[in-house]
């Protein structure tokens, strides 16, 4: 049953794409998450409302719907804009649409995670830093960020696991990731089960390795915290 008929390299090529999409969208998500969390905690009502609208909308709409909306709709939107500014025809590739959408979606989840993590920091430490005359940036780098990482790590890990699995959806908009290639290979060899099983095992490998790394990071960043 595990005769892959020479299609293994193709699946592994797909896996590289999958990992690229995952890491790139994670980066976007973290940036959006920090921006969103800062907006929610900034005290400005407008920033708070925008950020809340963002997280509510994203958490209420399925990722697949958002992805197809951005892929098909973004194409029209960009080219309508392009007509006005006299740009050439711009093609939104599935890679860009997929990465942007996944990053955008998980930015909302990261916003909530980071907000909780910042709120978990002892208020007195921030006051102490202010009393020392630290600027806002220095306070963020020295006090908030290191402790935020510790508090955010479990939630961040969960988000990453869900994100890694969500990358499978990019096959729907035509990106040649693992799932897409497994579909092709399964179709031409008439062994779809075999190839989807291989893909499932590769996903298990990705999540399994991430689990180990996160466990290690969690231990490292929790040094100095008493575990009960």
């Amino acid at each position: 049953m595990f005769d892959l008929k020479g299609y293994l390299p193709m699946i592994l090529d797909g896996m590289v794409i999958t990992i690229e999409v995952a890491l790139l969208s994670l980066t976007i998500a973290v940036i959006l998450g920090i921006a969103g969390a800062s907006a929610k905690l900034s005290g400005s009502r407008i920033a708070y409302s925008i950020s809340t609208l963002y997280t509510t909308l994203i958490r209420g709409i399925p990722d697949l719907v958002l992805m197809t909306l951005i892929f098909f709709g973004g194409q029209i939107l960009i080219n309508n804009l392009g007509d006005q500014f006299g740009w050439d025809y711009i093609d939104i590739s599935p890679f860009i649409a997929g990465t942007a959408t996944i990053g955008f979606i998980f930015g909302a989840y990261m916003t909530e995670t980071f907000r909780g993590a910042i709120l978990a920091i002892d208020r007195g430490q921030i006051e102490a830093a202010q009393a020392f005359g630290m600027s806002r940036l220095l306070l963020f780098v020295r006090i908030t960020l290191p402790q935020m990482v510790r508090h955010a790590l479990p939630g961040f890990g969960n988000n990453w696991m869900v994100l890694a699995k969500t990358t499978a959806l990019v096959s729907v908009i035509g990106l040649h990731d693992m799932v897409y290639n497994a579909n092709l290979a399964g179709g031409s060899t008439r062994q779809p089960f075999t190839f989807y099983l291989v893909v499932a095992l590769l996903y298990l490998a990705i999540t399994g390795i991430s689990d180990l790394l996160l466990h290690w990071a969690n231990r490292r960043f929790s040094i100095g915290i008493r575990q009960v």
Partner: peptide, 11 residues
């Protein structure tokens, strides 16, 4: 929990 729902459905 370790594999995408999409892959499970295709399987």
């Amino acid at each position: 929990r370790g594999t995408p729902l999409l892959v499970q459905m295709f399987l």
